[in-house]
Structure formats: structure tokens, C-alpha cells
Amino acid sequence: MRLFSKLGLTLFATSSLVLTGCQPFVQKPANISQQVEAENQFNLQGKIGVRTPQQSGSAFFTWVQQQQQFDIELSGILGVGKTQISGQPGQVTLNSAKTGIIYAESPEELLEQATGWQAPITHLVDWVQARPATVNAQIQKDPQQRPTQFIEDGWTVDLSYNDSASLPNRLILKQALESGQENRITMLIQNR
């Protein structure tokens, strides 16, 4: 039971942080900034699964993004194990019955505190909107010119779409490890 509790806590913290989309503020020209701000408003619901060499698990999520602020709720089946994550630039909090409140300055820092591993969490805001997070991304596209894969910051992100949808309904994030194993996050978006 104790192992399950630790695994559950780590899974929820990992899942929570994977979803956090708090992006650092970057000064952009007005027209580009306005377009990004409009795009960075969404409400997603779905399921997320996390698998590392040490553990695996899944949770249901609701993610509300309003430009630089976000609110994410994670829960197991029938709402068991509820975790709340909120953030804005410079302040991210995770609150659950098992951990209490954990504070950090960034989603990446919070993920490392909670789980001990690192991931480019802030990139998820872009990836769920079918766009690369950096100018250095390697991008593959399908015949409709929708991105099907990003390779950025040591992660490979595969995007899948329903029919002619312009935004992905499934993302698989993979990080190859030196041991030959991988960290894998599967995100299924059921409602936008």
C-alpha cells in the first residue's frame, strides 16, 4: 500500500506538471504577441499516462489556460486522488491531500521537486496547439501540412489528429535515456 501511495503521488505530480503550461514572458512585436495570446486561451479535458523505467500510471485532467495563467485539475477514477496545479510566470503551486501545497518558480522546477526528473513542461502550451515551442525544433508534417512530429530539447513529440481537425487529439512525448529506456507521456485530448 505504501508503494502504491508513493507511485500514485509521483504519477499525479508528474502528470500535473506535464500539463502545466506556464510560459516565460518573452517580449514580442505587438501583432505576434496578440496572436499568441489569443491562441493561449483554451480548455482541455482528457487523460494522461506517464511511464518511466521506475513507474507508470494515468489520470484524468482538466486544463484551463488563459495566456500566461493556468489551472489544472487531475484525478483518478471517480475523482479519487484529486490534485490541483495553478500557475503564472514566477509562481506555480501543486496542492493535493497527500503532499499539501508545494511551491516553485516554474513548472520544470516543480516537476523536479516532486519527481526528481526534468522535462520541458512549458513547451506543452505550444505542442497542444500544434506548433513548435522553439525556433530550433525539427518538424515533420502530414499531407495537410499539419505538424506530426516535433523534436525539441531532447524530446520527440508525435501528434495525431481526428480526421481533418487542425489541432491534435493525441500527443506522445518520448525522451530517450542513456540506459536505452525512455520516459513516455501519452496525452489524449477528449474535449477542447
Rank of each mutant, 00 (worst) to 15 (best):
G49C: 05
G49N: 07
G49D: 03
V50Y: 02
V50K: 01
R51F: 04
R51T: 12
T52E: 06
T52M: 04
P53N: 05
P53Q: 05
P53C: 06
Q54F: 05
Q54R: 15
S56T: 02
G57R: 00
G57E: 01
G57T: 01
G57A: 05
S58V: 01
S58T: 08
S58K: 06
A59K: 02
F60D: 14
F60W: 04
F60N: 13
F60H: 12
F61L: 03
T62F: 11
T62A: 08
W63D: 14
W63K: 08
V64D: 09
Q65E: 15
Q66K: 09
Q66M: 13
Q66R: 11
Q67W: 12
Q67A: 11
Q67E: 10
Q68E: 15
Q68Y: 09
Q69W: 01
Q69P: 00
F70S: 15
F70G: 15
F70Q: 14
D71Y: 15
I72C: 10
I72R: 09
I72M: 12
E73P: 00
E73S: 13
E73H: 12
L74K: 00
L74R: 01
L74Y: 03
S75W: 02
G76L: 03
G76M: 03
I77T: 14
I77A: 14
I77G: 13
I77D: 15
L78A: 15
G79T: 01
G79L: 00
G79P: 01
G79W: 00
V80G: 06
G81R: 01
G81A: 05
G81T: 01
G81V: 01
K82C: 06
K82G: 04
T83C: 13
T83F: 10
Q84D: 13
Q84R: 10
Q84P: 00
Q84K: 09
Q84G: 04
Q84A: 08
I85S: 13
S86T: 06
S86I: 05
S86E: 11
G87L: 04
G87E: 03
G87W: 02
G87Y: 04
P89M: 10
Q91V: 03
Q91Y: 06
Q91K: 15
T93E: 12
T93A: 07
L94F: 09
L94A: 09
N95P: 02
N95C: 12
A97G: 05
T99D: 03
T99G: 03
I102T: 09
I102L: 14
Y103P: 04
A104P: 00
A104D: 02
A104V: 00
E105H: 05
S106C: 02
P107I: 03
P107S: 14
P107E: 06
P107A: 13
E109L: 04
E109D: 07
L110D: 01
L110A: 08
L111K: 13
L111W: 10
L111T: 06
L111F: 11
E112S: 13
E112T: 14
